[in-house]
Design a binder for these strands. Structure first.
Lengths: 106, 106
DNA sequence: AATTTGCGAAACCAATTGGTTGCTCATATA
DNA sequence: TATATGAGCAACCAATTGGTTTCGCAAATT
């Protein structure tokens, strides 16, 4: 199963899980209390997150803590960079336009 | 059908379409030449992109040009901001650590 | 006026998704 | 030692997805 960070992040429950474990590592059971679905459903989401290395596990006795691998999030940021360049470019054009108007006034 | 920008961006073909029309507005037929699927399949992707306002249409005779609404991409950027804060925070901690080491040396 | 072209909509299809319940296993706890 | 608890796995299910082909319509072209 080809996993992809964009697909991983597409699901709202998965995004909520990411936000939760960004703060602190959590077990599947602890995570499940935050949602209206079963631990098994949460576990499935965690498996998907694990498959694209967004998440790391750490066994502690019979509990398994899931930690966010925050560096992986940068992949999205990098993809976004090309568009950021464009929308910032537009701001620059606007700035230029505004300063042109300003110069005309003065 | 509840459309969501994260789900829209989850599909690789859709990401490719976004990248193409970021440069210049294109018709479904023109877009389809870039992919191994039919125009209708591309049209479906465009419909999804339109449903979450990532794309705007402009009819020109019998052709329909699709334009990227780049500002919508900022929604992803904003979501990412909370995590960027964390990973940049780590860099700050690293910087602090490095400067501490440096101070010890000198 | 007849034909070609660009497009969206609909019907259909196989594969995937997100969820469930039921199971087993290993670790804590009584 | 017996029992309760945390977790992964498998089987199953309905809904969604990404694709197809077929169709009809409107705008160009002949």
């Amino acid at each position: 199963m080809r996993r992809d960070i964009f697909q991983a992040v597409a699901d709202p429950t998965r995004r909520a899980i990411i936000a939760l474990i960004a703060v602190q590592a959590m077990t599947p059971n602890a995570l499940a209390t935050h949602f209206a679905s079963t631990r098994q459903a949460v576990s499935k989401h965690l498996r998907i997150l694990t498959e694209c290395d967004l998440v790391k596990t750490e066994q502690q006795g019979r509990e398994i803590y899931y930690t966010l691998q925050i560096e992986k999030m940068k992949a999205i940021d990098e993809w976004l960079a090309q568009f950021r360049k464009i929308w910032e470019g537009r701001f620059e054009q606007l700035d230029h336009l505004l300063s042109t108007i300003k110069n005309k006034k003065s």
